[in-house]
Simulated scan of single mutants.
Amino acid sequence: MSVNPRVVHKRRETITALPLYYSGHLQRKNSNEQDFKKFFGELRGTTLFLYEDDTQHTYSEKMNLEKLKSMELVGHYQQKVPSTFNLNLHTEKVQLKMDNLDKGMEWRGYILTVIKKEVPSKLLPGQRLLLEEVLAQEKKRVHPGHRPPLPPRPDFLCAASPSPKHPKDEPDHKASTMPECFFKVSRDEAEKMLEANPEYGSIILRPSTRANNYALTLRQLTASGTAMKNFRVTPAKTGFVIELDKPVTLSSLNDVISYFLKKTEYRLQPYRASQPYDTSIDVPPAPKCINISPPLPKTVPKAQVAPMKRTETKPEESDYVVPDDCAPEYLDLNQSKSQFDGELREALKSRRANIYAANEKEELSIYQNQASSKSQSVAVQWDKDSSAA
């Protein structure tokens, strides 16, 4: 079943995060190779991505053409034979072969336009229009704000200015912190480490055989035994891409490890090598400048003046000492107090008698008044009865 080309291009754009300018079949050969290899190439930005065929989602190789020095045609202009171009890069020399001269010149025009930032001369009007659109799109990608250039800075500010930071949309892969399970080992060495020491962990992040790429080696327990799996992790403009059936883009390598831990329900753990432990205790020697003799007792200084002796006078046996409670002043005070208590009792007794007498008189008068009023009412009633008779 063929894959829809639009779906393939969308997935490739997600992985590379670069606009597509030109694509087509071509062949490539490095300086140390004898035969050409067939690829499907895509020019995205200033990078040439090479795929095994036009249905592959992830690229097999890529070429950074940003520092391209020249692209020259090999041989004479012949229409019906494949055309070969020499690309002089800053690190190596590469040859690209196209099916015919027209395809080769189209590739050359697009590559030189995005690298030199100018449209080549001697083009047809339709070709010039297409390349001008590509050039405008590339300038917008490289300089999104179209800000005017800043004036030159003074020398003293240039000396004190800090080093420029990487823009937010281009993460620095080299400066990012590497996970603890990263080891500079090959695929076979990583599998041997996981097989020999399963108690240390089951995930190793390692460099890939491709330049500037990474790979992840896992050791999993299955019903039939242990299985080793390897995944490719590719750096991209927005972070790192795990090349799965549906590629996953994450911001850092630590997030890549966390993604695998979550997907395996934390049954796998990052590989951490064992740290050596000491098995003996060394007693340090005693310091030489410490005095271990007991402290001397403190001496109290002697007084300069002899203390005066206090003499106490004792009463003679013939003298009689009168106690304090039997002193004459105390006896007079007790007598006056008892006399005052007696007078107070008499006054209270007479006051109480007067109160009782007054109360008896008042009760007697009330009783007499009630009796007289009762007798009067009886007499009146008697008169009424007698008159009625």
Rank of each mutant, 00 (worst) to 15 (best):
R6A: 11
K10P: 00
R11K: 12
A17I: 05
P19H: 06
N32F: 11
Q34C: 06
G41H: 02
G45F: 04
L48I: 02
L48T: 01
F49V: 01
E66L: 06
E72M: 08
Q79N: 12
L89K: 02
V94R: 06
Q95I: 05
K103W: 05
E106A: 09
Y110Q: 00
E118Q: 14
P120W: 00
S121Q: 12
K122V: 01
L124M: 12
L131C: 01
L131W: 02
Q137I: 03
Q137T: 12
H143K: 06
P151Y: 04
L157A: 08
L157H: 03
P162V: 01
S163E: 14
P167A: 09
D172E: 05
S176D: 14
T177I: 11
C181D: 03
V185L: 09
V185F: 01
R187T: 06
E189R: 13
M193Y: 11
E195D: 12
E195I: 05
P198C: 07
E199D: 14
Y200Q: 13
G201W: 01
S202P: 01
R206F: 04
T209L: 10
R210P: 00
N213Y: 08
Y214H: 13
L218I: 07
R219L: 14
Q220Y: 04
A223M: 06
A223S: 11
S224T: 13
M228I: 15
R232Q: 13
T234M: 03
T234Q: 11
T234R: 04
E243N: 15
L244C: 08
I257V: 15
Y259T: 05
T264M: 08
E265A: 15
E265C: 09
Y266T: 05
R267P: 00
L268A: 06
Y271Q: 06
Y271P: 03
P284Q: 06
A286E: 15
A286W: 06
P301W: 02
Q304Y: 05
Q304G: 03
K314Y: 13
P315F: 10
S318A: 10
S318Y: 12
D319L: 15
P323G: 07
D325P: 01
C326S: 10
E329I: 04
L333Q: 10
Q335K: 13
K337W: 14
D341M: 15
D341K: 14
D341V: 15
E343Q: 12
R345C: 08
A347L: 13
L348M: 09
R351V: 04
Y356T: 10
A358H: 12
E360G: 02
E360C: 03
K361P: 00
S365A: 13
Y367M: 11
Q370E: 12
A371V: 08
A379R: 08
Q381C: 07
D383P: 00
A388E: 10
